[in-house]
Design a protein around this nucleic acid. Structure first.
Lengths: 348, 348, 348
DNA sequence: GACGTTCTAGAATATTCGGCT
DNA sequence: AAGCCGAATATTCTAGAACGT
């Protein structure tokens, strides 16, 4: 057989040993040539093995055989303990066959999978990993529980909301059957109606938000919004006048106050331009007078002192209607200003 | 030695074997009596072992020795491969000493207790761990999904609650206008008549929602505009409804007061729809009053004299009702104006 | 020395070899006893080594020495090439000293640290597993945070719901004090009422839904427009319905006042379909009055005479009610104006 | 079920070869 | 080129595992 093949020494030697007819007394092929027999184990070990290997132990020989995947062929009479001589020992390997030495290179020596130290380290790692996994799973259980709790809570919330909604509907049904209030608001009630301010603030809030929107380099949108704020303010003002209107219809008041109340001027002037320019505006308000020109003067002066564009409206002596009109007019003055611009409200 | 002791048969036989002077030729105590020697391994195996055990294999004998914790004593000359006869084989165990058979019961047979796992585990458990990790991650995904679902549910809940809150406010508005059974509203009860607040809030909600839409800044602006329009309409409506309400409750008033207060006008006219869309619908409202034609004339004239859109309307002198009407009309006028321009209202 | 110590055979044999005075000719301690010398390498290898080891190769002997950490002691004359016989070979190890065999057990055989294939692969597996575990845990933390957030949100929701519930109760208290309308609503009223609210709700819902539709921003805008229009119209309708309600309750008034107040008109005309379809539909409301046809005629004529969209309608002479009606109509007229601009509201 | 027998495998050391510096 | 080392195989001792008693 080839000596330069990559077949390990043991297999080469074994092959030679079994093939060699000189050693047929101790080791030889079996009948079918698919296994080999060790006929006299004792003498084979002590006389033959040392000629080929560095030992004379059958055990070492067998260990090598096992190392290369050979298996012992068990005989049916193996259990019988014979006094003199045991039966032959037989080993086989799928690639160890008489006359086919080229198969030897298919026989691979087994390698120990792990090194001792590393194995220990690995074992520690594995236990770490397992501990970790246990923790993770425990935590997942916890999370699971919490999720479930939340889910139930949400369901409860839905029930709550549904319940509230039902109650609301019930109330709504009742409310629809309620006659509305007949008498006008009392003055005191109205006086508390400071809705205007609050709404204006609200609007301003929106306006600010819009104004600072960064994506759109076109500030025009923001400006348009401001224009709309105008409108809103107008609306608010209108409402304010309504309130006043109620006051005016206050015939139930005492004569004295009534008379003097007739001249009540109501208006609400808003620092609209200031709002638009970002300048803190001049909020001019007037109260109830006895038709003196104080209010007018006040208005005028404040208007005059205003250096920029917004023309203000003169309000003097006004009837209720006039006051309303004036207020509107004032707003009208402000409103059209943007109209000269060339930016459509809805463009993109 | 005692036969009825709980010492395994192997140990008893071994002890007997070593003690027995008849077998000293093959197996005997060492010099110091702390180990024993097998002098002629081959003959010992074939001639002595079968007399005590069910085999004649040195390997089986050695296996048993190892099973009970015996260790082979290695000799310095062990490496020598002798042609004829090997040196004696020596084994020792701490509790196997000449003359001290009572120690034998301390010798315990090894049990392959729980070792099977650890060895195999290394190869197999890694895959177990990996499987486990996969499961854990799958579960995490599930949890993730559930979390997301819960999150969305919560958002929906928030919307629900917000909606309920809005509805509550609306109801509150209505309720505030309802006369209580026992006594008229006290001032405090209606002092915070925040009709506009609530509506404005609703609008704001819409507005905010629109505001945060991220895709198209331009559209966003446009939508904000729309939202504001919506606000305006709501304001107007609120006002208008209040007026109407007053009118409607009129029949319950006394005839006298009725007569004198007849001038109350209800209307609702809004230029908003013009703003919002393209196609006109015909919205016709009608009222029934016994008014003069002053307002009509005024309206007419202003309409006629209106060259384009931006013309302002002068309204005077108006009654309260007329003023209100005029206000609305004015607003109608104002609205379309910006549409023709293609420039921001307040450009910078 | 002890034979059963855990000192490897090689060290035992080496120690014996060096100590043995019989082999001093070939191997012996150096002068200071801290190293040993191999005097005649050739004869030592061929004659001495086989007596102790399973080979007669100096290289194998040296390999073992290196395996146990022995180092060759380099001589100053090593560079000189001697023709016949080399100088003695000297090896040393910190724990291999004359007379101190107890140190031998400190000498450790080197172990190959890693197995190239399998060990590395497994190590990689382990790091994979550990990385994986780290990711999983990180994700768990994330989930934890989200859970916590959700929990807090839920708590806030509960507070909201609780608050709403409280408010509801308060309202309920108020409502209980309200006298309910005595007679049941007429069918039309109820249905109308329901319509109002329901539609409003629907619209709001639709608006929201539309709002979140992400695919087509333009469509979204358009739909929002429609929604807003719809809302507006609904608001108007609401108002109009209230009028209806008043009318319906009219029968309870005295005949006289009834007669005189007959002129109350209720209407509800809404260009809803037109808006929604983008097609102008003319929805004309009917009224129930003993009115003249003036208004109707006017309306009709204006509708007929409407060439395109932007034409204004002349309304005169109008009663107060007619004026209001005109205003509304006017608004309808106003709507198309934006269409003339170069930015259609609904374009894609 | 603990013990015994057999076959095989694990584990540590031993031997050899080749390569690297 | 001497010295050291990695790696594969070899040898030895011990242990695992299957199966039987």
């Amino acid at each position: 057989m080839k000596q330069n093949s990559n077949v390990p020494a043991f297999l080469s030697k074994l092959w030679t040993l079994v093939e060699d007819s000189d050693t047929n007394e101790f080791i030889t092929w079996s009948q079918n040539g698919q296994s080999f027999l060790v006929l006299d184990e004792q003498r084979f070990a002590k006389e033959i093995l040392p000629k080929y290997f560095k030992h004379n132990n059958m055990a070492s020989f067998v260990r090598q055989l096992n190392m290369y995947g050979f298996r012992k062929v068990v005989h049916v009479d193996s259990g019988i303990v014979k006094q003199e001589r045991d039966g032959p020992v037989e080993f086989q390997h799928p690639f160890f066959m008489q006359g086919q030495d080229e198969l030897l290179e298919n026989i691979k020596r087994k390698v120990s999978s792990v090194r001792p130290e590393e194995a220990k380290v690995r074992q520690e790692d594995i236990s770490k990993i397992l501990n970790n996994a246990a923790k993770v799973q425990a935590k997942q259980d916890t999370i699971d529980t919490r999720l479930f709790t939340l889910k139930r809570e949400n369901e409860a919330l839905w029930r709550e909301v549904s319940d509230l909604r039902a109650k609301h509907s019930q109330q709504q049904q009742v409310i629809r059957k309620v006659p509305l209030r007949t008498e006008p608001l009392k003055r005191g009630e109205i006086s508390d109606d400071i809705v205007i301010y609050d709404i204006t603030d609200n609007i301003e809030d929106v306006g600010v938000k819009t104004h600072v929107s960064p994506e759109n380099p076109d500030n025009t949108s923001a400006e348009r919004l401001k224009c709309l704020f105008f409108s809103i303010v107008l609306q608010l003002e209108t409402k304010g006048m309504e309130s006043f209107r109620n006051v005016e219809t206050f015939p139930e008041s005492t004569e004295d106050s009534r008379k003097s109340d007739q001249q009540l001027v109501q208006y609400t002037t808003y620092p609209l331009m200031a709002f638009l320019d970002g300048d803190p505006g001049n909020l001019i308000s007037e109260t109830q007078t006895s038709k003196t020109n104080e209010a007018d003067n006040l208005l005028e002066s404040s208007l005059d002192s205003q250096p920029t564009q917004s023309k203000l409206v003169r309000l003097e002596p006004l009837t209720e209607a006039e006051a309303n009109e004036a207020t509107l007019f004032y707003l009208c003055e402000l409103a059209p200003t943007p109209l000269d611009s060339d930016m459509p409200l809805l463009d993109n």
